[in-house]
Design a protein around this nucleic acid. Structure first.
Length: 936
RNA sequence: GGGCCUAUAGCUCAGGCUGGUUAGAGCGCGCGCCUGAUAAGCGCGAGGUCGGUGGUUCAACUCCACCUAGGCCCA
């Protein structure tokens, strides 16, 4: 009986059922590398239109995380897709190397550097800087190599041997030349700016280096006498503004008083003296002072107080009233002491009102000459006490208490920070209409998702001038000169270009290594005093300038690239970061946005939708996933989610991806198994000779391909995934392949019916592999190797399947959709027959009686011979009355009856047939099988 | 505190922008079948009232307001 099994055409393939991805994937990477697949891909598209995705450089200071993995995988999706579509897609990965995190790491952990830095002033010495930079370079280089391996492990193809590094000599010199151009065009200027400063470490701190901690400070209440009472607050009498501060030392630098424009202010009289205070603050302040029996004189709106002038409490200096929204109701008096040199808001307001800036404090946190006697040389704490002393004496001090509040501290030495005004280099955002031009360019860029446009627009229209300088060691220097004679600061394009030439040859350490004379053009003199001796600027450029310049330094013809890029693809946090910086520099230099389209993705969150955080213990590392499941599972996950929003990842989600993967893989496997004896060149049938069901599947395949194509083009890879997966599961696996088994297994090996099916199976498999290869790169490549017939050595060297209009057959498709509706109803009836009535177990034991009315009747009759195959039952009988059977079922005018099939079960094809046994040579076979075995 | 965004079955996504029959799909789950895709394959079924509250409307998951939770950026 089982002898007949050998006469069947059962599937056969070497393509393994199990993926074993963690083990197998590295082999593919090696092969792609050694066979130079990336370059072969480029070569294949020689002369074709370019599609340039410009890589946003990740920071080289540790292993990649899920966010960077997500990012690179998405980039790989679109590059591969565009390549398959016929574009030439060179991809040059980049790394961002300079900057604070690496410098901090080195200065904190490198023994040699730590030793050098025991002397806190050492940081200023060129040789120490060179040492630090050397260590930083080593550090960055190490992590570039690590990340490179990790990115490659994800299956990302690109020119990994020639990436761009912001610390490379080539990059640094080009960057400096761009800077020189900007100087020449007048974008760069110098101005004061307040920064967080650690007096102990004697260094500026970036926002990320600040820790907020509780601190006890004095709570100082004092009064400032009116000088010019423009708003007639006090009716010609002597009057005082009540002011509060927690940093008495900054009173030395007071240059104004802030009022809230919308608050109401109250003038009241206490013991014969008139005072001004915010109305919301009045009660609290009186209680604080223990003042009773006051008399309210009048109320004034904050906005009206603007322009009133007060006297500094102890210096003969004016302090005008200005308006600002920073003033709060909760604290103080509603009148805020303003020292533009010592506070961010103060600085902004001071700049707006032209108050000037006083910052008479040196790097060690000591008062300078500028502070005047008796403060010179005092520390800020001592100075603060002195201030209180003086105000106590002259009667301006009202009360001193204590307050515990959150205050910024240095992350390194944990001591409280101060605000200091320093001179910095700026890029003017409004020079040459830069902002306006940039805003205009934003409209010409395709943003995905669309909300990105609002976000970048807001950040460009609101952004202040760009502070370019950093007081750091690890970065590209700003090659400015200080005239030794007159102190004049010079930023000369020619000098900068000379420096750039040195950078190109020696790297940016050249700035420290060479004497300043080496950089000067012949006969260079201080334009102000004619001096010929200069000091070098020690500030470096903001790292956002580094990466923001990448479009200009990297997208060059000499690299086979082109400016502007077709696509930028980064996390949505880059609207304010890299997109912004790139846009500014791109527009400043070339009057155009450096990108044609910008795609952004969200954050990777845990399964509950919370940020992954060490302290929450919910962090997942990419290599955990790769080692356990493989990169294709990760890629499949990326493909399955709508990345424009935040995406969740966790155990269940991964398990679902593994399940999906198995289904896809097994379907590939089964397709391959049924093509073991099929040579597409010899055995394919022309379209006209295909069986109707097979033509129908080509119609579905063609539709699928076109939809997927559209989704890729719209950057909607999750729609690609869902559409594709649904096709694989529903149309191919559950329907087509299941129905086809009889034809594939039991019909003659070279029968037309079988070849017809194989012709379509081959097209399906090939299309499935190519169209999904950007997403599921390893597995499609693996399966590709088993594809029969002549084909490219790699799926990535194939072309996106061309549109086949002739495969679209709407008439046939709508007929089959109707048949499928009937099929669905039949399946329900069969389930009843099996489960409730137990008259059948296997579907082939069933005989189906069918009565269909209306237009569907014609279709059913047209394809009546196909119905048993389609339902996978042994017999189908069309009846004209509602069937009288053991099992009946009706749905939407489709009447179904189920009985047990007549005749006997054919031992070979298992189909029940009344003519089984008719042939004496094969007493247990049906006529069809007999014919097959007798070779027709 | 401000800007932008998100919230549909256990999971991943549709739908709704142009408000109107029982809100769809696949996976997972449950129950079966098969043993000629077998650490596979097939079928059937049960799951949501669309984050919450209020409003507009004859009618809202879909429009508006507020709230809650979460995310990114900024302060």
């Amino acid at each position: 009986m089982s002898d007949y099994k050998k006469t069947l055409n059962l599937p056969s393939t070497e393509f393994p059922m199990r993926g074993n991805l963690p083990k197998k994937e590295p082999g593919f990477i090696e092969r792609w590398d050694s066979e130079e697949l990336y370059f072969k891909m480029l070569k294949k598209r020689e002369g074709k239109e370019l599609y340039i995705l410009h890589d946003g450089p990740p920071y080289s200071n540790g292993h990649i995380h899920l966010g960077t993995a997500l990012n690179k995988i998405l980039k790989d999706f679109f590059i591969k897709y565009k390549h398959l579509k016929g574009y030439k897609t060179p991809y040059v990965p980049g790394w961002d190397n300079h900057g604070m995190p690496i410098e901090n790491k080195v200065t904190q952990e490198d023994k040699e550097v730590k030793e050098l830095l025991k002397d806190r002033t050492a940081l200023k010495k060129p040789e120490v800087k060179i040492k630090i930079r050397e260590k930083c370079r080593e550090f960055a280089k190490y992590w570039v190599e690590v990340q490179k391996k990790e990115f490659k492990r994800l299956g990302v193809l690109g020119d990994w041997e020639h990436p761009y590094l912001t610390m490379s000599t080539e990059y640094e010199s080009e960057e400096l030349r761009i800077f020189a151009d900007l100087v020449e065009q007048g974008y760069i200027y110098r101005d004061m700016m307040t920064i967080h400063w650690c007096p102990k470490c004697q260094t500026a701190l970036a926002l990320a280096e600040i820790e907020y901690k509780e601190k006890e400070s004095p709570s100082v209440w004092f009064r400032m006498k009116v000088k010019e009472d423009k708003a007639n607050l006090f009716d010609g009498d002597e009057g005082y503004a009540l002011v509060w501060t927690t940093t008495p030392w900054t009173i030395v630098s007071n240059l104004g008083l802030m009022f809230h424009p919308d608050f109401t202010y109250v003038v009241f009289e206490y013991e014969g003296t008139k005072y001004l205070v915010g109305e919301p603050h009045l009660e609290r302040v009186l209680k604080e002072f223990g003042w009773e029996d006051i008399k309210i004189i009048k109320k004034v709106k904050g906005a009206d107080i603007e322009g009133t002038v007060f006297w500094h409490p102890f210096i003969k200096r004016e302090s005008p009233a200005v308006l600002a929204e920073f003033v709060t109701e909760e604290e103080g008096t509603g009148i805020v002491h303003t020292a533009p040199g010592h506070g961010k808001e103060d600085f902004e307001v001071g700049k707006k009102y032209g108050l000037g800036v006083l910052s008479p404090v040196n790097e060690r946190g000591e008062f300078t000459e500028e502070a005047g006697e008796p403060f010179v040389g005092l520390s800020i704490d001592e100075g603060g006490k002195k201030v209180l002393e003086i105000m106590e004496q002259n009667g301006t001090l009202i009360k001193v208490g204590k307050i515990i509040h959150s205050y910024p501290h240095c992350w390194r030495c944990k001591s409280p920070l101060i605000f200091r005004a320093t001179t910095q280099w700026f890029l003017s955002v409004d020079h040459n209409n830069l902002r306006k031009k940039a805003l205009n360019e934003i409209k010409n860029v395709r943003w995905h998702p669309e909300e990105g446009e609002n976000r970048i627009y807001a950040s460009v229209s609101e952004r202040p001038d760009w502070v370019l300088s950093r007081q750091r060691a690890w970065g590209v220097n700003i090659p400015a000169l200080y005239c030794k004679k007159c102190g004049h600061v010079i930023l000369d394009p020619q000098v900068i270009r000379n420096v750039a030439d040195y950078f190109e040859k020696e790297g940016s350490d050249a700035w420290y290594k060479h004497p300043v004379e080496d950089f000067l053009p012949e006969g260079f003199k201080c334009p102000k005093c004619g001096g010929t001796e200069f000091d070098k600027e020690m500030d470096i450029l903001d790292v956002w300038f580094d990466s923001g310049a990448s479009n200009l330094t990297v997208l060059k013809e000499s690299r086979g690239l082109r400016w502007p890029a077709d696509l930028y693809l980064e996390g949505s946090d880059q609207h304010r970061g890299w997109f912004n910086a790139s846009l500014m520099l791109g527009v400043a230099k070339r009057d155009r946005a450096p990108f044609r389209a910008v795609v952004t993705h969200g954050w990777v969150l845990d399964e509950q939708g919370r940020t992954m955080h060490k302290s929450l213990g919910n962090v997942i590392h990419p290599d955990e996933i790769i080692e356990k499941y493989g990169a294709d599972i990760m890629r499949l996950w990326v493909a399955s989610v709508d990345y424009t929003e935040d995406v969740k990842l966790g155990k269940e989600i991964l398990q679902r991806m593994v399940d999906s993967y198995r289904k896809i893989r097994n379907t590939y496997r089964f397709l391959l198994g049924n093509l073991y004896d099929f040579d597409p060149e010899k055995d394919s049938l022309p379209y006209e000779e295909l069986m109707p069901l097979d033509k129908f599947m080509l119609h579905k395949l063609e539709t699928l391909k076109r939809e997927i194509d559209k989704h890729y083009d719209n950057f909607e890879t999750h729609r690609v995934f869902h559409r594709y997966f649904n096709f694989v599961v529903v149309d191919v696996s559950a329907f087509y392949l299941d129905v086809l088994k009889d034809r594939l297994y039991t019909w003659g090996k070279e029968s037309k019916g079988r070849r017809s099916a194989q012709t379509v199976l081959y097209e399906i498999l090939k299309t499935l592999l190519i169209t999904f290869s950007p997403l599921l790169s390893f597995t499609t490549e693996e399966a590709w190797q088993y594809l029969p017939g002549k084909h490219e050595e790699s799926v990535f060297l194939a072309d996106w399947p061309a549109n086949r209009d002739e495969w679209l057959n709407e008439t046939l498709a709508s007929e089959f959709e109707k048949l499928l509706e009937v099929r669905d109803a039949v399946l329900v009836a069969l389930e009843i027959a099996r489960k409730e009535k137990k008259i059948i177990s296997d579907r082939l034991e069933a005989r189906v009686l069918l009565k269909v009315d209306g237009e569907e009747r014609n279709v059913i009759e047209k394809y009546r011979d196909l119905l048993p195959e389609l339902f996978i039952v042994s017999q189908v009988e069309l009846v004209s009355k509602e069937p009288d059977a053991e099992v009946t079922y009706e749905k939407d005018g489709i009447f179904i009856g189920v009985t047990h099939a007549k005749g006997k079960k054919c031992a070979r094809c298992w189909v029940w047939h009344e003519e089984v046994g008719k042939d004496p040579d094969y007493p247990d076979l049906c006529p069809k099988c007999v014919a097959v075995l007798k070779g027709k």
